[in-house]
């Protein structure tokens, strides 16, 4: 069974040229895929389409053995596939790191105590426990990125979708990120990245997004 399958996806921005043009994509258990390609070719758009944040003009999306039709389908999909945004500032909006990390689990219907426990466990495992009470917009770049990752891992997603996870990170922070990703038991992982060192360490299969399609 495929975890995610995209069939013949077409997408174009309003009054703009077509971005994705008959794109096919398959994600299976244990896959580690790296997507590269020039800027503006629709890599981020592809992630947004998988999670139903934007709708393609044509094509089918299947996730976790189910055809995605409406927002209800996608909301389950979003809970099982965690997307790390390019800019952590987009992702952190609560008054404290702790609350940001607990936000997802609470939305998943966990009780306050459960959410608090999960948040604590996640923050400790990422080495962020000491910044739990800080305001997210006051963190350093590296801390922000890890905090954003914590908000996703706390939802215990099966798939990780990482959009330029090492962009703007110092080498030490990148290594820390890699170490965390190595220990997290994700069923599959897709990363958009141009960072050679990161991709080598991840030992991911490379795909190139060009002319609206994925090429190996």
């Amino acid at each position: 069974m495929y975890l995610v399958q995209l069939k013949e996806i077409n997408f174009s921005y309003e009054n703009g040229p077509s971005v994705l043009d008959g794109l096919d994509f398959v994600l299976q258990d244990h896959d580690r895929i790296a997507i590269t390609g020039p800027n503006g070719t629709g890599k981020t758009t592809l992630f947004h389409i998988i999670l139903g944040l934007i709708r393609p003009s044509a094509g089918e999306i299947h996730a976790f053995g189910k055809k995605m039709e409406d927002d209800n389908d996608f909301s389950e999909c979003r809970s099982r596939a965690g997307l790390l945004f390019q800019d952590p500032d987009d992702q952190l909006f609560c008054p404290s790191v702790m609350e940001d990390v607990a936000f997802g689990p609470l939305n998943q219907g966990k009780s306050h105590n459960e959410a608090r426990e999960i948040a604590e466990k996640t923050l400790r495992s990422l080495g962020l426990w000491h910044i739990r009470d800080r305001a997210p917009y006051h963190l350093s770049g590296g801390e922000k990125r890890l905090a954003a990752l914590a908000t996703i891992l706390s939802m215990q997603p099966e798939i990780l979708l990482l959009d330029e996870p090492t962009a703007g990170l110092a080498p030490e922070a990148s290594e820390k990120l890699l170490a965390i990703l190595d220990t997290y038991p994700a069923r599959a992982l897709v990363a958009i990245s141009h960072d050679r060192l990161f991709l080598d360490a991840l030992s991911a299969k490379r795909l190139v997004l060009k002319d609206g399609r994925l090429h190996s």
């Binding site: 999670l51 979003r78 800019d87 609350e99 939305n107 306050h112």
Partner: peptide, 24 residues
């Protein structure tokens, strides 16, 4: 544009209009 992305990020984490406050 940033507002749009923040909203997307909130939806990704299951936001459905409920406000949670950890310390109730």
């Amino acid at each position: 544009e940033r507002g749009e992305r923040v909203y997307m990020a909130m939806r990704c984490r299951g936001f459905n209009g409920t406000f949670w406050l950890l310390s109730h």
